[in-house]
């Protein structure tokens, strides 16, 4: 991809998300767990009167650790349509905003897990680190 990427840490890994998708970062939020919901749904939180459904991407990617739930920080995404349900996901901590060019991106390597292949889009190669760009379409897809 070409443009700005917001990086964040989750389960000791570095991820990135296209910054145009992001509405805001909320720190130290209070959320309400929802019993009997899917395991990758952490709960709901009140963002100035709007109900945001919080995802656990760690669970979604089938990492064992799951996300950090102490002093939770979350990235809330822009809704695709004005009346769509708001979604967000917990992260361990935010990273930087990076300028990314097409030449730095590469398709996912062949040896990653099937789940990762489904929910990740690309790998961004920076000098010192690799950033996994998440596929928000897929991750927040709701299968019944």
């Amino acid at each position: 991809m070409e443009g700005k990427v917001l990086t964040f840490y989750l389960c000791d890994r570095l991820f990135g998300i296209d910054i145009t998708m992001v509405k805001e970062i909320n720190r130290n939020i209070k959320y309400t767990p929802v019993p009997r919901s899917r395991d990758y749904i952490v709960g709901l939180f009140n963002m100035r009167g709007q109900v945001v459904t919080l995802f656990d991407i760690g669970k979604r990617l089938e990492y064992e650790e799951g996300c950090n739930k102490n002093r939770p920080t979350c990235i809330t995404l822009k809704p695709k349509t004005p009346d769509a349900d708001l979604v967000g996901f917990l992260i361990d901590r935010p990273g930087d905003v990076l300028e990314v060019g097409d030449h730095e991106c590469e398709p996912l390597p062949a040896n990653i897990s099937a789940v990762e292949a489904k929910f990740l889009k690309e790998v961004i190669k920076k000098d010192t680190e690799l950033i996994m760009l998440i596929d928000t379409e897929e991750i927040f897809q709701h299968e019944l």
Binding site: T32, V34, N46, T53, D85, L144
Partner: peptide, 22 residues
């Protein structure tokens, strides 16, 4: 929210006086 539609035990969401969701 649509992500919780299959939870049959809830009919909606509300925000309480203290700002938390129930």
């Amino acid at each position: 929210p649509k992500f919780l539609k299959e939870c049959r035990c809830y009919s909606g969401v509300t925000i309480m006086g203290d700002g938390s969701i129930a």
